[in-house]
Each structure stands twice: as structure tokens, then as C-alpha cells.
Amino acid sequence: MAAEPWEDELTRALAQQFGSRIERFAAYVGQNFLVAECAAVYDIVEALRDQWQFDYLAELTAVDFPSRPKRFEVIYILYSFARNQRIRVKCSAAEGERPRSVVALHATADWLEREVYDMFGIEFADHPDLRRLLLPEDWQGFPLRRDAGILDMDNRWVQENLGIESGQ
């Protein structure tokens, strides 16, 4: 089962508007997604919100692929109440690249972007208050990166603050 191409009125309009900034439209197991370049995502999310009624950002997360040249994939899942439709916007970000924050478009993104920063170390440009969300502020490392093993979490922090030998 591979991803099939996805084409309808929406993709044609978006393709016209964004041209090569959107790499492809596809569908996998019945779920539509588009892959775009990182710098275009803010504009795409904005266009989807204002012109296509995708007014609810259901989810914002990331996946780490250390072997790719641009290791992170940032995923935005949008939903439209009016169209009862979901769409996934994906973009790749290299280490140190700063995708533009979508907090100005969707207030939900605030904590979700903070969590992505917390877990992956992806910094979002223009985020109002980018701090760690779940982990302590002085925690070292980013646990959801693939190269962070379960056993080598921040043992120093655990020893200093909790007084036990290791995090296990």
C-alpha cells in the first residue's frame, strides 16, 4: 500500500497559489496530506484557515528521522468544521532551522509548539514564549529524538534534584 496521489478542487487551487512551494499532494489509508517546504507552511495554514475554513488545528507534532538530510518532520493536522474534512500539512526541517510559529493563526499551537521544542529541540520563530512545557526547565537534551535512548536521559538532573542514582 503506497500513498496515492490526491487531487481535487482544493489541491488545484493550492497548487496554483503556492506553485512549487508545495512538493506534493497525497493520500494514505484514506487520509489526505500535503508536503510543503518549511518556509511556506505558515502561509499555507493561513490560506487554509481563511479561504478554506480549516479553522481548527487539531494537532501539531514532529517526527525525527536522523538519517534524512533534513532530520525533522513537522506535522500540522487541520480540520474544518464546515467541510468535515481533515488535512495534514507536513514539512521537513533541518537541525537548527526555525519554522515560523503558527500561534498567531491558531492559539492552540502555543503549548503544542512548546511541547515540540521540549521533546525535539525544534525552535519556532516568533513564538511568544518558547520554554519547555513538560520537562523541567534545566533539563538537558531532547528525549523524543531517536538518538536519545531510554537509558541515557538526563541522569545528572535526576541525581541532583531527586537524590536517586539514575532515572530508572
Binding site: 521533546m119 519547555r132 512545557l133 513538560l134 520537562l135 528525549p143 531510554i150
Partner: peptide, 14 residues
């Protein structure tokens, strides 16, 4: 928040 963080998403990868 985060006092109850157990790293469920990391556990899943293993």
C-alpha cells in the same frame, strides 16, 4: 504541568 510526565510516547518507540 509535567509533574506526572512518564514519557509514554518514548516508551512506545521501544
Amino acid at each position: 504541568i509535567g509533574y506526572l510526565h512518564r514519557g509514554v510516547e518514548k516508551i512506545a518507540e521501544n
